[in-house]
Structures are given as C-alpha cells and as structure tokens.
Amino acid sequence: MSTNERENLLHLLNEQLRHFSTDTILFHQAVAEKLGLNSTDHKCLDIILRNQPITAGKLSDLTGLTTGTVTGVIDRLEKAGYVFREKDPEDRRKVIVRVHMEKAEGEIMAHLQSFGQSMKAMLEQYDNEQIKLLFDFFERSRDITRNETLKLKK
C-alpha cells in the first residue's frame, strides 16, 4: 500500500468517524425528545442505569458535570418519573439515586429495540476476530475521547 493510499484511507476513516459521532448524537437527541428529556438528562439516565445505586457526587465524577448541574439533572429525571432518591442507609447525609426500572425499561426500550436489532444483525456479519478488532478499536477510541475530554476541562 502506498503512502498516499494509506493517508487517503485514514482521512476517509476519520471522516466516517466524524459522521458516526454526529449521527450518534442526533439519534440520542431524538430518543431523548421521545422520552421528554434533553440529551444530557437522557445520557445521565443511561449512566445511572449502568451504575445504580449511585450518588449525585459519583454521577458528577462520571460525567464531569458540576454537582449543581447534576442536581438539576436528577431533579428533572425525578419529575419525569425515571429516578427516585432515597437516603443512604450507611450515611444518612448522602442521597442515593435509583431508577424506576419498569418505567425506564418500558419507555426507553420501546425506542431502542429496532436500533438494537439492526445493530445485532449487522454485527452478526463479522467473525470473532473482526469483533475483537472492533472491540479494541472502540475501547482505545473511548480512552482517547475520555482523555481529550479531561484536557478540555482543564
């Protein structure tokens, strides 16, 4: 492969990644709108789902959002009926956030089911070695994204 061909491929791949990133954001914005949420609240709900029970401080750490912003997120999610707060039994000064699973699963999954099925059908076309390569790519890409996010916040 010539240097020019490789540079062209890397450029095209970078362009596809940019499109993928934008399309992903727009997809999640559309899901958020269906749920009556903004995109930040929607993605915070996803983080809460994967890390519950969670404190507001931990959510702040995971998202990089200020504690004040996180309080607003939790307030809106609670008002929408997706989460509830309860006192930490080990430290009554702390508040734990949990998800109303029936509501979250019922409403969120209704909007993600088609997407999940389409992604599964696409991924089934790859063999195990290709899946491992994709996994490595995304894992390393996430590391870069997180590190670059931290740099921007300094």
Rank of each mutant, 00 (worst) to 15 (best):
M1A: 13
S2T: 03
N4Y: 10
E5Q: 05
R6E: 12
N8V: 13
L9M: 06
L10R: 15
L12D: 14
L13S: 08
N14H: 08
E15K: 15
E15F: 14
R18A: 10
R18D: 05
H19V: 14
F20R: 09
F27G: 04
F27S: 12
A30E: 13
A32N: 03
K34H: 12
G36S: 01
G36T: 05
L37S: 00
L37D: 00
L37T: 00
L37H: 03
L37V: 04
T40G: 00
D41A: 07
D41S: 03
H42W: 05
I48Y: 01
P53Q: 05
I54F: 03
T55H: 03
G57A: 06
K58Y: 05
L59W: 06
L59A: 02
S60H: 10
G64Y: 04
T67F: 02
V70N: 02
T71F: 07
I74L: 03
R76K: 02
R76G: 07
A80P: 04
G81C: 10
G81H: 05
G81P: 11
V83I: 02
F84G: 05
E86N: 10
K87I: 13
K87T: 10
K94T: 02
I96D: 04
V99L: 03
H100C: 13
K103I: 12
K103V: 14
K103Y: 04
E105D: 12
E107T: 01
I108F: 05
S114K: 13
S118H: 00
E124Y: 08
K132D: 09
F135G: 13
D136S: 07
F137T: 08
S141Y: 12
R142Q: 14
R146I: 15
T149P: 00
T149W: 14
L150W: 12
L150D: 13
K151H: 09
L152Y: 04
L152S: 11
L152V: 13
K153I: 11
